[in-house]
Protein backbone atom coordinates (compact mmCIF):
# COMPACT_ATOMS: atom_id res chain seq x y z
CA UNK A 1 0.00 0.00 0.00
CA UNK A 2 1.48 3.30 -1.03
CA UNK A 3 0.01 6.12 1.00
CA UNK A 4 0.48 9.78 0.21
CA UNK A 5 3.26 11.56 2.07
CA UNK A 6 2.74 15.15 3.10
CA UNK A 7 5.07 17.59 4.89
CA UNK A 8 4.46 17.78 8.62
CA UNK A 9 3.74 21.51 8.56
CA UNK A 10 0.67 20.80 6.41
CA UNK A 11 -0.86 18.33 8.82
CA UNK A 12 -3.86 19.98 10.49
CA UNK A 13 -4.01 20.47 14.24
CA UNK A 14 -5.30 17.46 16.14
CA UNK A 15 -4.07 14.93 13.59
CA UNK A 16 -1.37 12.31 13.89
CA UNK A 17 1.36 11.69 11.37
CA UNK A 18 3.87 8.88 11.03
CA UNK A 19 7.35 10.01 9.97
CA UNK A 20 8.37 8.43 6.69
CA UNK A 21 11.06 10.67 5.27
CA UNK A 22 13.44 13.35 6.47
CA UNK A 23 15.00 15.63 3.87
CA UNK A 24 16.96 17.98 6.17
CA UNK A 25 20.74 17.99 5.89
CA UNK A 26 23.64 18.45 8.26
CA UNK A 27 23.06 20.04 11.64
CA UNK A 28 19.32 20.48 11.19
CA UNK A 29 18.96 16.80 10.31
CA UNK A 30 20.80 15.76 13.44
CA UNK A 31 18.74 17.98 15.63
CA UNK A 32 15.50 16.57 14.29
CA UNK A 33 16.80 13.01 14.63
CA UNK A 34 17.87 13.72 18.18
CA UNK A 35 14.31 14.71 18.99
CA UNK A 36 13.48 11.13 18.14
CA UNK A 37 12.05 11.85 14.71
CA UNK A 38 13.25 8.66 13.07
CA UNK A 39 11.17 6.65 10.64
CA UNK A 40 7.81 5.41 11.89
CA UNK A 41 7.73 7.83 14.81
CA UNK A 42 4.19 9.03 15.46
CA UNK A 43 3.81 12.80 15.87
CA UNK A 44 0.69 14.52 17.13
CA UNK A 45 0.01 18.07 15.95
CA UNK A 46 -0.97 19.89 19.12
CA UNK A 47 -1.48 23.54 18.29
CA UNK A 48 -0.24 26.52 16.39
CA UNK A 49 1.17 29.59 18.10
CA UNK A 50 -0.91 32.78 17.95
CA UNK A 51 0.73 33.92 14.72
CA UNK A 52 0.23 30.50 13.09
CA UNK A 53 3.90 29.53 13.30
CA UNK A 54 5.67 27.76 15.00
CA UNK A 55 3.58 24.71 15.78
CA UNK A 56 3.74 22.53 18.88
CA UNK A 57 4.03 18.79 18.37
CA UNK A 58 3.88 15.88 20.75
CA UNK A 59 6.98 13.82 20.00
CA UNK A 60 7.81 10.79 22.10
CA UNK A 61 6.25 12.21 25.22
CA UNK A 62 7.69 15.71 24.91
CA UNK A 63 6.07 18.85 23.54
CA UNK A 64 8.33 20.43 20.93
CA UNK A 65 7.72 23.56 18.89
CA UNK A 66 9.04 23.55 15.32
CA UNK A 67 9.01 26.35 12.79
CA UNK A 68 7.27 25.61 9.51
CA UNK A 69 10.62 25.52 7.70
CA UNK A 70 11.80 22.63 9.84
CA UNK A 71 8.51 20.77 9.88
CA UNK A 72 8.39 20.99 6.09
CA UNK A 73 11.46 18.78 5.95
CA UNK A 74 9.63 15.91 7.59
CA UNK A 75 7.30 13.91 5.40
CA UNK A 76 4.61 12.00 7.19
CA UNK A 77 1.75 9.70 6.47
CA UNK A 78 -1.45 10.81 8.14
CA UNK A 79 -2.89 8.21 10.47
CA UNK A 80 -6.64 7.88 10.35
CA UNK A 81 -8.00 6.10 13.33
Amino acid sequence: MNRKLIPLNQVPTGFYGKVKKLIAEGQARRRLLDLGLINDTVVEVLRKSPAGDPTAYQIRGAVIALRAEEAAKLFVEIIHD
Binding site: A24, A28, L32, P54, A62, V63, A65, R67, E69, E70
Partner: peptide, 11 residues
Protein backbone atom coordinates in the same frame (compact mmCIF):
# COMPACT_ATOMS: atom_id res chain seq x y z
CA UNK B 1 18.45 33.87 7.50
CA UNK B 2 16.92 32.51 10.67
CA UNK B 3 18.51 29.22 11.64
CA UNK B 4 16.65 26.11 12.63
CA UNK B 5 14.66 26.34 15.78
CA UNK B 6 13.35 23.73 18.13
CA UNK B 7 11.88 24.70 21.45
CA UNK B 8 10.69 22.38 24.12
CA UNK B 9 7.55 23.33 25.99
CA UNK B 10 8.15 21.53 29.27
CA UNK B 11 5.27 20.37 31.46
Amino acid sequence: LPSSFTLELPP
